[in-house]
Design a protein around this nucleic acid. Structure first.
Ligand SMILES: [Mn+2]
Ligand SMILES: [Mn+2]
Ligand SMILES: [Zn+2]
Ligand SMILES: [Zn+2]
Lengths: 136, 136
DNA sequence: ATTAATTTTGCAACAATTACAATAATGTAA
DNA sequence: TTACATTATTGTAATTGTTGCAAAATTAAT
């Protein structure tokens, strides 16, 4: 995606695109690596030497609030973030520690024993060993 | 479930049933409340005044290792535990904060874009507002 | 009864996150 | 432009959930 599109996307969701916000958002959509705050910070501090970890926290919180990112909770003590806000699942490999996207069809699942419940978020993830790590 | 059955169940899974372990396990299967360490500790300290929070952590870790309990990660910074080790999902109400069980049929989901992957754990949860809280 | 092995406990250390106030940057109106 | 108000960023301290570790207590074996 081009920078102008990114700026538009953020702006349309009520996120003023400061340099830090722009870079963090670009990082999320380009890397698609479901990073932690620490990963983002370490990967961006080179290009933005004054970046503060607090800013990363603040920015991600803002992204979540405005709906341009969402949280992925797979391990506790390891909050990850995803700029893909569509409903999809994840697979975390316990060897290489990578997090892969999984397409899921939630159509029927939603209507089991929770009729009358208001669903706001759907989360699905698997843990195991990825194809590559199995063959190593 | 009777205490003798509980003892057998723990023993068969390689967990020596000390008083602390027995009480914590009984708590899990009786309350079915998907508690945090803190909740367990606060609810049991009355009956076991010498109980240590470290013991709760140790015990739950042992339960997980031996397969008589599993971790539920819905919020980060809020690790919950479940003695129901079958594959099932959860719904967390953001008003009353209760966690409900959901039956799920994973049959098809497992075979989408992760062929060749070894699946060890399946996690599914929803967040929203429960029926009761909606009508209040 | 001694000794060895296991379990529990208390406290210190740690790491992720949040609170908060100071600084910097940006926007707005004379 | 200058002056002022608003917003964003930063650094540090505080908080919280968790783990490490060694001493004390309990249980098992000899
Ligand atoms: Mn994703
Ligand atoms: Mn459950
Ligand atoms: Zn892997
Ligand atoms: Zn509720």
């Amino acid at each position: 995606m081009e920078v102008n599109n990114i700026i538009d996307h953020l702006t349309q969701h009520g996120v003023k695109p400061s340099p830090q916000r722009l870079n963090i958002y670009k990082y999320l959509i380009e890397e698609k690596n479901h990073p932690t705050v620490d990963t983002i910070f370490k990967d961006l501090i080179g290009a933005m030497p004054t970046l503060s970890k607090t800013t990363v926290y603040n920015t991600l919180k803002l992204f979540i609030d405005k709906g341009v990112a969402k949280v992925i909770n797979i391990e506790n003590n390891e909050t990850r973030y995803d700029a893909d806000t569509s409903i999809h699942g994840h697979f975390k490999c316990e060897k290489c520690l990578k997090v892969f996207d999984i397409n899921i069809d939630m159509s029927e699942i939603k209507t089991l024993d929770i009729s009358g419940f208001l669903i706001k978020e759907t989360h699905f993830y698997l843990k195991g060993i990825c194809k590559k790590c199995r063959s190593d």
